[in-house]
């Protein structure tokens, strides 16, 4: 089965994500994998909505693409690099430079300031201080974040603010791929829609490939490329 998120594929010829015969088992003693994807491709600049029921393997796939999990058969290619075959150190370096991740819980370091949360990501991604300043100046108004909040500890921010800081952190290195996992689950519908608009505008601006994971059917309206994890996962079982 060859599933390609097809909008714009005529215009985009560079592959951002290529998954081929990738399997993953949580319990390594089992024979049958929890997740098996035969063939899936996402082109550079595409915005893909990955939907599916809870426990269907969306987050597992996102973690495999982020290098947080290591597939049992190593067949993930990101931006032309055999990502899943890289050493752990190279995976860390690749992730820092090319991948932004926004988690459901945002995963900010609560005891350091907003600015330092962003600067740390920039530091690991090798982005210079001038560029960080420039990108932040660009991002903050779009994310409705004031410069005053930069000095605040991330743990003291509201959920909405944390969510926007998490995006700022994920985008600070101008990543080629942005992986977003259910970031709107704590938001009301108005805030959710506003967030989605900002996210898509920023991804367009930075020409970032977006993989947006959610089980919320309302969000699929923001995307033209939609993939159901159930169609991708040949293993067809509950993953988590």
């Amino acid at each position: 089965m060859n599933l390609t998120s097809d909008t714009n594929k005529d215009q985009q010829n560079e592959l951002a994500i290529k998954v081929e015969n990738m399997s993953y088992k949580y319990d390594k003693t089992r024979i049958k994998p929890d997740l098996f994807i035969a063939d899936w491709q996402v082109y550079a600049g595409q915005h893909v909505f990955l939907k599916g029921e809870s426990g269907s393997g969306k987050t597992t796939l996102l973690n495999l693409l982020a290098g947080v999990l290591v597939p049992d058969s190593r067949e993930i290619t990101l931006l032309g690099e055999p990502f899943s075959q890289l050493s752990p150190q190279k995976i860390d370096a690749f992730r820092a430079k090319h991948i932004g991740v926004v988690y459901q819980q945002f995963n900010l370091i609560p005891f350091v300031s907003v600015l330092k949360n962003v600067q740390l990501a920039a530091h690991f991604g090798g982005t210079c201080a001038d560029q960080v300043e420039q990108t932040l100046a660009d991002l903050l108004p779009k994310l409705a974040l004031s410069t005053d909040c930069l000095g605040q500890a991330a743990g003291q921010l509201s959920v909405g603010q944390q969510q926007r800081v998490a995006i700022a952190r994920a985008l600070i290195n101008h990543p080629d791929i942005l992986l977003v996992d259910e970031p709107t689950s704590a938001l009301d519908s108005a805030a959710r829609d506003a967030f989605m608009q900002v996210l898509l505008v920023l991804c367009n601006k930075f020409n970032t490939t977006l993989l947006f994971v959610s089980h919320d059917p309302h969000l699929q309206a923001f995307f033209t490329d939609r993939v159901n994890i159930a169609e991708l996962n040949i293993a067809q079982g509950d993953v988590i």
């Binding site: 947080v68 150190q89 860390d92 370096a93 992730r95 991740v101 370091i109 740390l120 690991f124 952190r169």
Partner: peptide
């Protein structure tokens, strides 16, 4: 553990 994992996710290598 969580703080360290977050650092890893944003790109800190085990060496760091």
């Amino acid at each position: 553990r969580r703080e360290i994992a977050i650092l890893r996710v944003i790109g800190a290598s085990p060496r760091v």
